[in-house]
């Protein structure tokens, strides 16, 4: 089953299967909007705030998302599997490359 994912920052909408994490759905369609990093819950660049919708999660690194944040819908997009349509805003960003 597929659901509609709305990135509120850009008004980008894409569909994502319940078996796909939010980044995988976005990437497969060539869409952009959420920064893509490790896609395994470890680097924190795809941090999003879920405003609406239900979802399942997998473990994410506590260096990037605290339990309180996770409980209140601040999660890593690569660890979120949609169960309904979802709207989200982007919090994460790629770190500055090297210090000059």
């Amino acid at each position: 089953m597929s659901f509609q994912i709305t990135i509120l920052d850009t008004n980008e909408v894409y569909s994502c299967k319940e078996t796909q994490h939010l980044l995988s759905g976005m990437m497969q369609l060539g869409k952009k909007g959420i920064p893509v990093g490790c896609r395994s819950g470890g680097c924190g660049v795809c941090k999003v705030k879920i405003h609406q919708g239900a979802y399942a999660t997998k473990k994410m690194s506590r260096d990037h998302v605290s339990q309180d944040e996770e409980n209140s819908g601040t999660v890593l997009a690569c660890r979120v599997f949609p169960q309904t349509n979802i709207s989200l805003s982007v919090i994460g960003h790629l770190h500055k490359a090297v210090m000059r």
């Binding site: 660049v45 790629l94 490359a97 090297v98």
Partner: peptide, 11 residues
């Protein structure tokens, strides 16, 4: 060409 994640993503 630099890959953005390669330069910015660490764990």
């Amino acid at each position: 060409t630099l890959v953005e994640s390669f330069m910015g993503v660490t764990s």
